[in-house]
Design a protein around this nucleic acid. Structure first.
Length: 272
DNA sequence: AGTGTATCCTGCAGGC
DNA sequence: TGCCTGCAGGATACAC
């Protein structure tokens, strides 16, 4: 569920309530989401102060006052929620609760439990981080960089965009939206894109990601931000999930195709 | 090396 | 109503 804009929104909504707070106690209701096990997690977090919250790719990074990091990945259905003091009850799918000194808590909730939490020291995170592709919204990431990387691959461009080692944070929604905005068909081989098409894809990806961040992400079903609010980008989607509906550009019918084990949505008139 | 497929897990929609 | 199948925003281990 959560791609770059959703994870970014979660981080932004949690910064205010969490930075500066101290974790008093950790409760693990679903041990299988905790890499390294619940006991190690509880020990690592006990009495630590939260110094910063960042996003890298689809990871939420909680910086602790001993220099270590709590890495949270939302998988498909994960939520990271701030519960103010005396707030609503936990859902049946609450997996981990971090109690905050002075009241309130942070809860990791995940129906499918594809996501999870892990405490890492700086070196361990760096080793992981090096395998991640560039951030598409980084000002230093230009169209020439994208084109050059695309030319080295023969995989379908939609599959290429979903590979986090090539470009970070792009999932199926924004890969499809970016390709539509660029007028490029998702099954086109990466190395077949012209310089102009790579430029259009770069612009299209940035446009859809930027606007989605501004609107707090896309809620199709489960996604909510750190305060439990839905994203407002869904009504701006041009093709994703719109099989049989009219293309916003040409009015033609949007098709759903399947490859690489996942659905792609295409306007056959607009995308070549 | 580079690509595609199966898999983890639960819930929901649609067909019969 | 109820059972079955397929599908869902991610990431990774493996086979070819």
């Amino acid at each position: 569920m959560p791609e770059l804009p959703e994870v970014e929104t979660v981080v932004r909504t949690l910064r205010g309530p969490l930075v500066g707070r101290r974790i008093s106690r950790t409760q693990v209701m679903r041990p299988d989401v905790v890499a390294g096990g619940p006991a190690r997690l509880a020990r690592a977090l006990r009495d630590r102060r939260i110094e910063r919250l960042e996003r890298r790719a689809k990871n939420i990074l909680v910086g602790l006052d001993d220099g270590r990091l709590l890495r949270v990945h939302l998988g498909m259905t994960g939520k990271l929620l701030h519960f103010p003091r005396g707030a609503r009850a936990l859902s049946a799918h609450a997996c981990v609760r971090l109690r905050l000194e002075g009241g309130g808590s942070v809860v990791y909730d995940d129906v499918r439990r594809f996501g999870g939490l892990e405490v890492l020291d700086g070196a361990a995170w760096l080793a992981r981080e090096r395998r991640l592709g560039p951030e598409p919204l980084d000002p230093a990431y230009g169209p020439a960089h994208l084109h050059e990387a695309l030319l080295r691959s023969r995989s379908p461009v939609r599959s290429w965009l979903l590979d986090g080692r090539r470009v970070a944070g792009v999932g199926n929604i924004y890969a499809n939206e970016g390709l539509f905005l660029a007028g490029v068909h998702p099954t086109r081989l990466a190395n077949s894109l012209t310089e102009a098409e790579a430029e259009a894809l770069h612009a299209g990806l940035r446009a859809t990601l930027t606007r989605a961040v501004e609107l707090g992400g896309t809620t199709l079903r489960d996604y909510v931000d750190g305060d439990g609010n839905r994203g407002r980008y869904a009504e701006n989607l041009s093709v994703y999930g719109r099989e049989g509906l009219p293309c916003p550009a040409c009015g033609g019918s949007i098709e759903r195709i399947t490859f690489g084990g996942r659905s792609a949505f295409v306007c056959p008139g607009c995308q070549r």
